[in-house]
Amino acid sequence: MSSSATTIVAATRPPSAPRIRTAVAGMLIFVGTEIMFFAGLVSAFVIARSHARGWPPPGQPRLPVVATALNTLVLLASGAALASAGRAAATVFGRRRALRRLTGAVLLGAIFVAVQGLEWTRLLAFGLTMRSSQYGSFFYLIVGAHAAHALAAISTLLWARQRLARGDLTADAFTATRVFWYFVVGVWPVLYTVVYLA
């Protein structure tokens, strides 16, 4: 009787719950925290702007709205390139195509950061610094925070590219790095609207 009982027990061992993608779940939660971080920055900016006398303050340079709009398109193109790299990676034997598109995404991202850097040097030359006004402080804080995230995301993409080239990048790890870059791409239009167009 006991042996039959154990076989029944073995047969009724409860099924495991279906697994979710660990790396992706972790990255999504992290991105949620990052969204709250930028929400904090945007809130501070909105409040500071609301009680400032004149925004931008007189004597401070205006931000390059059109050039940055074009640069935004570069960043969006980078996101699209990465999305297509993800689609290529999901197909059988899509590694080489995924690698090419990933490289394109990294290059477009790097161009975005470089152009932002050039803009900064010009603005600094025009006298907009971190300490020149609240306007300058917030500009460098918010855009700088985004640039730091872009650089971090580009280095994770480069890491993923190296692993992909070697052929030992897992699908989950690739998805997680892509999620982080989508966040960097997706939050930028919001920041652009708030900081440049307001």
């Binding site: 939660i29 949620g32 925290t33 990052e34 969204i35 709250m36 971080f37 930028f38 929400a39 904090g40 920055l41 809130s43 501070a44 804080l141 925070a145």
Partner: peptide, 14 residues
């Protein structure tokens, strides 16, 4: 914690 800590980190940076 993770939902609330972001704005404080933003404030701490400032």
């Amino acid at each position: 914690f993770m939902g609330s800590v972001g704005p404080l980190i933003a404030g701490a940076v400032m």
